[in-house]
Amino acid sequence: MRVISLFLSSIVVFLAFVANAGNVPADSIVPASSRYAFEIETSKAALSGFLITKESTANIAGSMINEFGISAIDFIYEREKNKLELKNVVGFLNKWYIRKVLKNDLLFCLHILYDIPYTKRHHYIVERSESSVTIINNKRHLKYSFSLQNPASRNI
């Protein structure tokens, strides 16, 4: 009788586990990864490389590196707060006035790249082509171009 009770208890526990499998928090699922070639142009200079992102239901984490593999910017965007935080910025970009513009611009770029609803900002212009999207900050004369490198993951 005792053995039967233990056996039945284990079945109940197993069934409870299976029933809850679909409710596993989304963040524990392997996040989707995307890679974009990017270019940031100013009137005087340009920075190019790759934006690698990992997307979960809670946030989007991104690293921007140049073709030599040197890190330029790391950031995390929290969906619920609609907030982007710059985690690491390479030395020559790490000035408070540059960080402020980058933070706002990258936030807007993510809204465009990931189809996140946003409040219209009149100083941004978005241009799309078949393979890329360009976001222009008219106020600061900055141009951000992104071209998806692994189309199986998501579409521009």
Partner: peptide, 15 residues
């Protein structure tokens, strides 16, 4: 062969 290890993303990029 260049392998870039991205610590924040726990990912890498090979070229």
């Amino acid at each position: 062969t260049q392998t870039k290890n991205l610590s924040m993303l726990n990912d890498k990029m090979v070229s």
